[in-house]
């Protein structure tokens, strides 16, 4: 059945928060409760998407775009103001416990482990909570230990772990019951390069080997480029892009960047058709040019004929720079998508 292939289905999902300024203290709060004029913000504003089993989806957007709020609705913590959501065929905010048994969740900025207990005991509690048999648990822990190197941490109380160590444990903790769907809200926040890399490798592996559906929220575009085939970009609670990460480049970027090192600095570059200088640093200059109207050979030829060049390279724009442009509204997002609803 095709229906079975859908891991997450979201339709018109919205969440409003009441942020009416309440007065100081208790009486102020009471008054605010009965006040008619309310200040409401729409954190998530009528989003739709479907995610198939086995997908690895990046869920990005600026601070306050509504990413965490979406994840909280999909994990059954928050009840949507309107719209609907289904995860593994379960409505999370109606059947929270049933849903919780079939998902894994990591909130980067808080731990799901017990602060006072040694890591080992936290895992043991999770085993009982998720009703995992001892033998399944043992084999799962063995697997997790191989990649995340947990054994050395098992005896430590959670509060003594470093951020990176804690994150490894937290990710493992979300997988104790081997859930088919995994929600990760900034799991690489505050980690060093190596720790990030090992976590990335691990996530890629479980997505590949176990077919775990993963929804990843992050501000690190390297995470996205390495891991997520599909990207959903959220802005002010609305989806502004939903498609392949690779396609994003083709759709939104009509510029390439040339990194040119000249023999001597002080060269003033101008008058080359289609070219603008975006950055200068000594003899090095970064130029963009209109990729649609000018050929790359043409541009390089013109530059080389006018100036003495030491080195030249062509950079593909990174997903990061594209997304930065989207956030900055430098790229218009009249989404060329076919599915956009006609009014």
């Amino acid at each position: 059945m095709q229906q079975n292939n859908i891991a997450i289905k979201v339709k018109g999902l919205s969440k409003d928060f009441d942020i009416s300024e309440s007065g100081k203290g208790f009486s102020g709060k009471l008054k605010a409760l009965f006040r008619r004029k309310r200040k409401i913000i729409t954190a998530v504003d009528g989003i739709d998407f479907e995610i198939k089993h086995g997908e690895f989806v990046g869920y990005v957007g600026e601070n306050g775009a509504g990413k965490s709020t979406t994840i909280k609705m999909l994990t059954g913590i928050l009840v949507p103001t309107s719209g609907s959501a289904e995860v593994n065929g379960i409505i999370p905010y109606k059947e929270r416990k049933k849903n919780a048994a079939k998902i894994g969740v990591v909130f980067g900025q808080r731990t799901q482990l017990w602060w006072d207990l040694p890591v080992r005991e936290s895992f043991d509690l999770l085993r009982v909570i998720f009703r995992v048999s001892q033998s399944d648990f043992n084999s799962q822990m063995k697997k997790l230990d191989q990649v995340l190197d947990l054994n050395s941490l098992m005896g430590m109380p959670v509060r003594k772990l470093s951020l990176g160590q804690r994150m490894r444990c937290d990710i493992a903790a979300s997988l104790v019951h081997n859930p088919p769907v995994l929600f990760l809200d900034e799991p690489t926040i505050g980690l060093d390069v190596l720790a990030k890399e090992s976590i990335r490798n691990f996530l890629a592996e479980i997505n590949r080997e176990e077919g775990t559906t993963i929804i990843l929220t992050t501000h690190d575009m390297n995470d996205i480029e390495h891991l997520c085939k599909r990207l959903i970009i959220l802005e002010d609670g609305k989806i502004v892009y939903d498609g392949e990460t690779e396609l994003l480049k083709q759709k939104f970027v009509h510029e390439k960047v040339l990194e040119v090192e000249f023999h001597d600095d002080g060269n003033v570059i101008h008058g080359i058709p289609g070219v603008t200088v975006i950055r200068e640093q000594g003899c090095k200059k970064w130029l963009t040019f209109d990729n649609d109207n000018y050929g790359i050979g043409e541009v390089i030829g013109t530059i080389a004929s006018r100036y003495k060049i030491k080195d030249i390279s062509v950079n593909e724009p990174s997903v990061e720079s594209i997304i930065r442009n989207i956030y900055n509204n430098r790229v218009t997002l009249a989404t060329p998508s076919e599915e956009s609803p006609t009014k």
Partner: peptide, 13 residues
């Protein structure tokens, strides 16, 4: 402190 979120993502009452 928001830690209630963690409890709600567990299949427990």
């Amino acid at each position: 402190d928001g830690s209630i979120a963690i409890e709600l993502v567990r299949p427990t009452s």
